[in-house]
Each structure stands twice: as structure tokens, then as C-alpha cells.
Write a protein that binds this DNA or RNA. Structure first.
Lengths: 202, 202
DNA sequence: CTCGCGTGAGACTTAAACGTCTCAGATGAG
DNA sequence: CTCATCTGAGACGTTTAAGTCTCACGCGAG
């Protein structure tokens, strides 16, 4: 009987990422339990299995749609943080702040086993975003703010997997969302910033 | 647990972790493809499905055994690095060196979806190891070598997931095993070490 | 040569999940 | 009131992979 419990103000940021409540609930459950069946996902979303199939033609389509929404959110967050603008340290801070808030939402979806072509499509969607982040790293290295010995590729790896780790730590109750976000930012900052002094512009 | 067929000189470090060649091959394939069927795993190991079932009574048993071997290797590597001995910076370096070499072997197995009780058993096995690592962090903080604002819990999270990330980066061809290991160590070191000066012992 | 052991091949049963379909009840608009 | 629509419940067929079993082959030991 509980179709759409629209109450006062849903503090749930997954909603705005995944569009509707069913998708959001399914995403949450799928993140905790990657092998969940359509039955389980329907229960988690509070609808019947039939309704879930009406909304998503197949399980693969469901997973693909959720992962694409997550990738989209990731890409938009980075874009809005404008990594190409202003001094690299500040740009990095903006990016980390934006991504930290996404951890709980999209982190664990990164673990989802995907079909080949879906994974390729996701990589294609985020390729430009990743390149923008690599550019930021290189820009900071040229300006003297960031360590030159850090591979931009490793920065992407850190970003991706520490996001997942933050989400997992929160899931296991080992970290709070706030502390995870702070530690994520602090770690990336420490890894990138040169220990000595910031810039020198000859 | 069958006997180990010791032949000439296997250059494959997965062998010594997983005991026999069948288990090692299955582990490698399972890491790349977490949803692989017994058919696929048998082919990857170069044996028939029947033989795979003779070696492992069920798929769950296979996954459990591989993950337990990985956890065992992780725990042993940390123990042998003696995190409680000597100055914290050196102890940390030993631990990171040992774990970096394990990345390719055990990293991706951490992603495996496990049954509840198996996961619990793994966590129980590694609890002491994790506590030893937390102790190392705290010891370094008390000695003034490490930043006090870093949560030991976050260090474990970083360690775990950057290990996975390193393995994944190598799998995707984005990083080489050597560079991944170096970056892993550099990142943890940068995240932990105090930027100013090492110790002060009043 | 012959025995015994392990392996590969493949048939078979079972279990679980996917995906389709139908039908009855609830709800809201006109 | 009536109709259109959406939903839940559940039956149903299909597929896929797990797990079991049998049998024939190869190979080394005695």
C-alpha cells in the first residue's frame, strides 16, 4: 500500500542521483549485496517483483542504468568542481570536496560486475572526466605545487578506490561519512602536495 | 589440503600462496572475473569440471579456500614484517614492502562476494593482524613520526583498498606491478608521515 | 600383461533465478 | 458510478549452472 511515501523532506541524496525512489533503493541494496536477485531488490525497494520488471526490462538493464547514473554523477561532480580553473591546490580541494560527498552514493557501485559493452560505455563516458583530472595533476606538477614523481594514473587509481574504501568503511561501521570524507581529502592532498614549499615561478 | 608438487622453479608467486597449480589458476581467473562458473574456472586451470569438483566439493568451498589462503598470506606477510619492532617509519616501510609484493596475488580476491560466515571467519583471522597495524600507527603517532590527525582505521582502509586498486590498475594495463608497488608505498608514507620534522623526545 | 588409480567426457537431476503472463484489487479522474 | 491505470500476487516456462554419477581411456607399478 505504500506507493510513494513523499513526506516532509527526504535527506537522501541518492534520490537525486538515481531519479526515482525504486532505483535509489535498488542501488543501495545492490551496493551492499552485489549478487542480489531481482526478488531481493524488489523487496528492498518496497515493490513487487513484477513492478520492478515493469520499470526495468531485465536485471542487466537495471544494473546498467544504475551504474550509468553513478558514472554520470561522478562526471558531473568533477565538471562542476572546474578542475581546470584557478590554482591547482584549490582546484584539487574543490574536486575532493565534491567527490567526497558522492562516496556513499556511488562508491560501492564501482564494484559491480558488468557486461563487457556496458563497462566500455561507462569508461567512454568518464574518459573525458579522467583526462581532466590527469590534466589537473600535470598542471599542479608544472606549477610546482604537486610532486612530480606521482603518476597521474596512480592519482586516478587512488581516487577511485579510496572512494570505494570510504563507502565500504562507512558500510562496516568503521568510519562515519564525515570522517571518511575528511580523510579521503587529506590523503590525496598529502600524497600530491610537495612537502617542501608550494610554488616557485621563475 | 593435498601435497605440493614441487618441481623445478615456478616463477609464479601465486603458487606458493595457493598451494597447488589448480587453485592458483582458479584464483587468477576468479580475480579477473568474479562471476566465473565452475566450467570457466576448470578451463582456466586446464582441468575438467569433474576434476575441479573432486578437488573442491563445491564452488562456495573453492572461493572460501582461496580467500582464506589470501587472508593467510596477508596476515603472514604482515607478521613477518614485524610491525611492532624498531622505529615506526622503518616498520611501516617493511610492512608496505611486504604488502606491495602481495598486491597482484591477493588484491582482487578482496572483491569476492562471500557468504556471511566465511566473511566473518576471514575477519576473525585477520583481526589480530589489523590490530597490529593499528598499533603501529598509534606507536608512530606517539613517537612523533606520524600525523596524529590520521585515524588508524582509515589507514587500514587505505591499505586494503589501495592494494585492490593497485591490482586493478595492473589488470587494466594502466600501471606496471613495480610502479604500483612504489606508488602504494609512497602514498601511505606521505599520508602518515608528519610534514614538519620526525621525532621530538622530551 | 594386468591391475589400479586418476582423469576427461558427458549424461543426468536439481535448484534458483530470470522473464512472461494473467488476474484481481485499489485508486483517482471525469 | 465508471472507466482507465497501476500494482501485487502468483503461476508458468525457460535457462543456466551446480552437483552427481557412470564409463572409458591412459599410464605407471608390479
Amino acid at each position: 500500500m505504500a506507493a510513494a511515501p513523499h513526506r516532509g523532506s527526504p535527506p537522501d541524496s541518492t534520490l537525486e542521483v538515481f531519479g526515482d525512489a525504486v532505483a535509489a533503493a535498488a542501488a543501495r541494496h545492490l551496493a551492499l549485496s552485489p549478487a542480489a536477485s531481482m526478488q531481493e531488490l524488489a523487496e528492498a525497494a518496497g515493490v513487487s517483483r513484477a513492478t520492478l520488471f515493469r520499470r526495468f526490462p531485465s536485471r542487466a538493464a537495471l544494473v546498467a542504468e544504475l551504474c550509468e547514473a553513478a558514472a554520470e554523477a561522478f562526471a558531473r561532480a568533477v565538471e562542476e568542481a572546474a578542475p581546470a580553473d584557478g590554482p591547482p591546490p584549490q582546484a584539487l580541494a574543490r574536486v575532493l570536496d565534491a567527490l567526497g560527498r558522492l562516496a556513499a552514493v556511488v562508491g560501492l557501485l564501482g564494484l559491480q560486475p558488468l557486461q563487457e559493452h556496458v563497462e566500455a560505455s561507462l569508461l567512454a563516458r568518464t574518459a573525458a572526466t579522467e583526462e581532466a583530472l590527469r590534466d589537473l595533476v600535470r598542471r599542479g606538477q608544472e606549477s610546482g605545487d604537486f610532486r612530480v614523481e606521482v603518476d597521474p594514473e596512480w592519482v586516478l587509481t587512488m581516487l577511485t578506490w579510496l572512494l570505494v574504501g570510504a563507502a565500504d568503511g562507512v558500510r562496516l561501521g568503521r568510519l562515519t561519512a564525515g570522517s571518511a570524507q575528511r580523510h579521503l581529502a587529506a590523503t590525496l592532498t598529502a600524497a600530491l602536495h610537495r612537502p617542501g614549499g608550494p610554488p616557485r615561478h621563475p
